[in-house]
Design a protein around this nucleic acid. Structure first.
Lengths: 154, 154
DNA sequence: ACTGAAATTGGTTAGTT
DNA sequence: AACTAACCAATTTCAGT
């Protein structure tokens, strides 16, 4: 399909600042018309570069105060099965297949200690799970979900 | 103004589906007027429940194909300094202060092996860093940045 | 707090260069 | 691929309840 140029990256960068920013505002800033921005954003969605638009919610303010990073080792060759099970769980926000001591790293958020404990115990009991290593998050220092694109623009 | 009720959670849930969804659409779905949705969203922003709106970008399609989860141990009492340095780095998307073998877990994304190698080496050289453990991400199984709020709504 | 309507601003489409 | 221009839709404000 089509190629991503600097105008596209600039639009992405504007949306990173505020995804509800109006097309008109972006257009003015980048010196093109609204229709151009409109078409470019549609192109980026079609290409799958923009997957969706989401609110960044402070889940802590909704009571989700407990975060755990969990390392999991699967029983021989069963990594994919374990990952699938983890990915289905609504409290799990990230599942990474990784190299090293663990096969999988999962990030999960809970409203109370009981839910977290139950979750960890259940994972440990899963048929294909060899061992788990739970790291309780004491403080979220950074969580942007984004990469600064400025190095690609100039 | 203060407390978060079920209407607020329903609005958040609608925005999780699509943060650029129009106030009119949300209003119709929830059986109230646009102005109500408008005021509620502003309340949620003011309360810090909604921090911002962002596009979910497929960074892999922009060339950021290398992801690493890095465990870091800081030298005696210097955890905060290490975290601060990590948080300042543009390629680092998450920094968690954790319990266990490591003091800090960082997630970072790169465009090439050299950048990643350089990054890991630089971290290892930092004054306050005792040791690092790099887990290369082979596959992103899940990365939603969101928690399903339905358990709080009904 | 919510509504309803007015005023303002934004999104979308078609046609043109 | 981007612009103009028109049209329609959505956002924001505010008086009234």
């Amino acid at each position: 399909m089509e190629k991503i140029d600097k105008m596209d990256l600039k639009i992405l960068s504007e949306l990173q600042e505020d995804a509800r920013k109006s097309l008109r505002e972006i257009a003015e800033k980048l010196g093109v018309t609204e229709a151009t921005i409109y078409n470019r954003i549609n192109k980026l969605k079609k290409l799958g570069v923009i997957e969706r638009f989401i609110p960044v919610i402070n889940y802590s303010k909704l009571g989700y105060d407990l975060i755990a990073v969990i390392g999991i080792t699967a029983k021989g060759g069963k990594v994919v099965e374990v990952e699938k099970l983890l990915a289905e769980m609504p409290n799990v926000t990230a599942v990474y297949d990784v190299t090293g001591e663990f096969d999988v790293i999962a990030v999960s958020k809970f409203r109370d200690r009981d839910s977290l404990n139950e979750f960890v115990k259940n994972i440990g009991k899963l048929e294909f799970v060899e061992k788990t290593y739970t790291m309780l998050v004491l403080n979220v220092v950074k969580e942007t979900h984004m990469i600064d694109l400025s190095e690609l623009i100039e």
